[in-house]
Simulated assay, not measured.
Amino acid sequence: MPVRMLPSAADLLVGVLRPALAVATVGTLIPDPMPLPFVLARPIGGAAVDMRFLARAVVDVQTWAETDRDAEDLAAAARAALVAAWRQQVVVPGVGSVGWLAERAAPVLLPDEHTGDGVYRYQATYELTIRPAS
């Protein structure tokens, strides 16, 4: 198995969000069929700051639920979980931790042609730095 110098941003997101959002399924790919409520959390860009110990990741967090309020609340809970992981320096075992966090786009209702009637979607974008676990 190859040696990984920097942690997977996807693994870190899932490791932070799954325990905090136990009411929802959290994943990095959209399943078919999609269970509701559902949280999609994945990196969409970034680069190493220092390839030995620090990476910057731009991440997308989307939430789906059966009501607008539930989808919005789930997006707010995801935001709070990321902030708590950063502020408390939570280490996801075998992965790493969030060294810094900034919101690039706050959670917003984002309907689309692929989302069925009675399903609501929110999307937010964050930038974070990640460090490997010690």
Rank of each mutant, 00 (worst) to 15 (best):
L54F: 07
A78M: 00
F53H: 15
W86E: 09
P37Q: 08
G15L: 03
G46I: 02
V91C: 06
R42E: 11
A57V: 03
G27I: 05
R18C: 12
L13K: 00
G45Q: 14
W86F: 09
E66A: 14
P43A: 12
V61E: 06
V59K: 08
A55C: 12
L17F: 12
R52W: 15
A78E: 02
L17D: 06
Q89S: 08
G15S: 02
P19C: 11
M34L: 15
E66M: 10
P19T: 11
A78D: 02
L40G: 14
P35M: 15
V16A: 14
A84P: 00
I44M: 11
V61Q: 02
W64K: 04
V91Q: 04
L29K: 15
A41C: 09
P93S: 07
A65Y: 06
V16S: 14
R69L: 04
A75K: 09
D32T: 15
A77N: 05
V16K: 13
R56T: 08
T67D: 05
L74G: 03
L17S: 08
E66N: 11
V91Y: 02
A77M: 02
D32L: 13
T63E: 09
L82K: 02
D60T: 09
A9E: 11
R79N: 08
V49T: 06
G15I: 00
L21D: 11
T28A: 12
V49D: 03
F53N: 13
D32N: 15
D11E: 10
Q62I: 11
V58Q: 15
R18A: 14
A85V: 00
A10C: 08
G46E: 10
D68I: 04
T25Y: 11
D68P: 07
P37A: 10
A85C: 02
P31D: 10
R42T: 14
V59P: 04
A55G: 14
Q62D: 10
A76P: 06
A24V: 05
V61L: 07
A48R: 03
I30L: 11
A47W: 09
A57Y: 10
L36C: 02
A48G: 06
T67Y: 07
T63I: 04
P19A: 05
D11W: 04
D73E: 07
P33K: 13
L36E: 02
E66K: 04
V83C: 01
V59W: 08
A22H: 12
R52K: 09
T25C: 12
M34D: 15
L40E: 03
P31S: 04
R56K: 09
A57W: 08
F53D: 15
A10S: 13
A75N: 07
A55E: 11
A80Q: 01
M34R: 15
D32S: 15
